[in-house]
Design a protein around this nucleic acid. Structure first.
Lengths: 341, 341
DNA sequence: ATTTAGCACTCAAGGGTTGAGAGTGCTTAT
DNA sequence: ATAAGCACTCTCAACCCTTGAGTGCTAAAT
């Protein structure tokens, strides 16, 4: 539906615009080595492209700028990816690999991603509900201070110091731990919690004070984990200051606001969650006018076929998709593989 | 050295400028109810103030703006603090009080502070070297997976999952834990570490594989804690976008850069560390040209007379010191009291 | 039937001018 | 000491003009 000539022309326009960030005029475009036409002909073709809604002139006598639709066409069908070198990939893997707990790993991946791309990165954290409670343990810290340790999925450890009203012995703690492990270990977080609450009610009627207060503490750690205050991470916001088209106080304010009040981001991330591979959302596609002139590149990460979350970057629409997409892709792959272990 | 009249005039000028942010002219100032002078006289007085370096005219026919020195005078000797209501204070205390580990508490305090003041907040974290290692524990997670748990100062818990090359039994783990607790518990982090390394060398010569690899893991957790990747927290940077005088891409870039690359902030924080009570650094006093038009308000927080760190806010010089100073003060007090517990 | 050259037209951006407004410093009168 | 008056200075916004880049259309050339 688009002639070869139009395609080449459009591609060149796109290339020039991505580099310069300024509207591209017919003469500039006619000078491209790939294009052997006069500026007049170029103008005619550009008029066609404009009718198709692929490009657009900011004002009567300016050059043309790609529209969201134009970006989309470009990304979908004329983009050549520039994959990372093997060394580069190994380097990234190495930087992420020190055996950290998942939260720290995520944080690392996030800063890594924003550093690599020079844009803002975001990571939608895994839902905790389906995590599996592997182990509960109590460590006596003093007469009536106990450290509650919960281990999820073999990697993720949460803990909390609790004060008990009366003293408790290690042996009692071990007993309770054994009991709870019997009851809860191997269950999902949500399941474990209901079990816990059941037991708690059962026991309350008896008069085992220690037990009920320890279980209560355990429950509070669990529920905190379930609620998960931070549904996603954002890093490198300040990178966005480097892009002319975004570096206006109002624009930045609304973007940063969106990063903090996550609701405005979730719709995009959700969409990406169900999709396969890298997704590119351009401008209005992001579902919120504040993302004008921005694009979001995302991809899900997963373990054993199950999607855990989404990661990606936010930057100006005028970004180098050819480089960014592979970077997002590889980060997700590496993250997935590290989470598996 | 400053006549009463000049003082009143200066104070009014300051007040007007803090509110409006625009240079204050002689007629505007003459209209103040407190000032019963003609604009001409006001001009004469302003000329004196300018000679003293307290105010300054951005250009020939503009009103006057306070200089850093002017701010200093104002803050030092004519500021009336507006302390927080008891309710407000209780409210803050409550929001911070859920028994969290220290790191989470700090983070909370930081966001609280930036929220309250509408500026960027920062907290210099306590040095970890002098923390005391209270307890070491190992939890077997599987045949050759062990969770290393270190408890510092009764509140701060760090942990790490390590993989061992060969299987290890719980009883062995308990033995090692007992041994290490004997050796290290109660020592400072730094001391504990040297002890640990000594033991490690001793044991390496024998052939206790488990032990040495477990100790190695413990040591790596310790050293990580000692290194402390994050010497201070910053929150609410984006608040700074709301101030005209700072909301320019270049300015923001350099400020945000300073927040990320902490070295540029440490000098101020160090100064405040040794001082008593709330300190106000104005413009150039902050020790770096990027803080032009900015002020930093800090105060140390402490436990039992020992200063642990510093917290404060960064904002435009044109801030409401009367409100900000008490807020910083009270936050430090509350934080101190919560850390004690 | 394309392609091109030519031409009139439009618009943004930069430079210079102008006038209003705000404010100052100085001098003189009270 | 204080005030009033006046000349002066500077910013800012409005305005105009020019320039350069780019367009659309038409007519000629291929």
């Amino acid at each position: 539906m688009l002639s070869d000539r139009s395609q080449i022309l459009f591609k060149n326009l796109m290339g020039l615009y991505l580099n310069e960030g300024k509207p591209v005029g017919s003469t500039t475009l006619a000078k491209c080595p790939e294009i052997d036409l006069s500026s007049a002909t170029v103008r005619n073709v550009m008029a066609d492209l404009e009718k198709l809604g692929l490009i657009h002139a900011p004002h009567t006598s300016a050059g043309r700028v790609p529209t969201d639709k134009g970006y989309r066409l470009f990304v979908d069908s004329m983009l050549t990816y520039q994959p990372l070198s093997i060394q580069r990939e190994a380097q990234i893997r190495q930087k992420l690999s020190p055996n950290l707990n998942p939260d720290a790993l995520m944080l690392n991946a996030s800063t890594m991603l924003s550093g690599m791309t020079g844009m803002a990165s975001l990571i939608l954290m895994p839902k905790k509900e389906r995590e599996i409670l592997k182990h509960i343990d109590f460590i006596a810290l003093g007469e009536n201070r106990v450290l509650v340790v919960l281990v999820f999925n073999d990697q993720d450890v949460q803990n909390r110091v609790v004060e008990l009203e009366s003293a408790i012995t290690s042996s009692e703690l071990i007993k309770i731990a054994n009991f709870l492990n019997e009851q809860c270990a191997g269950k999902s977080l949500a399941q474990a919690r209901t079990t816990l609450v059941e037991r708690l009610n059962l026991i309350r009627s008896t008069t085992n004070e220690f037990m009920s207060s320890v279980i209560e503490a355990t429950d509070s750690v669990l529920s905190e984990q379930l609620q998960q205050k931070i549904p996603f991470l954002v890093s490198g916001q300040t990178n966005l200051l480097n892009y002319q088209e975004l570096a206006h106080a109002d624009k930045l304010k609304s973007l940063f606001h969106a990063f903090e009040h996550h609701s405005e981001m979730l719709s995009v991330l959700d969409k990406s969650m169900d999709a396969q591979g890298v997704q590119v959302f351009i401008g209005a596609e992001c579902g919120n006018p504040i993302y004008q002139d921005c694009s979001i590149v995302t991809t899900p990460y997963e373990v054993e076929g199950e999607v855990l979350g989404v990661l990606g970057v936010v930057g100006p629409s005028r970004m180098n998709y050819g480089k960014v997409v592979p970077k997002v892709d590889i980060t997700a792959k590496i993250l997935s593989s590290l989470l598996k272990k």
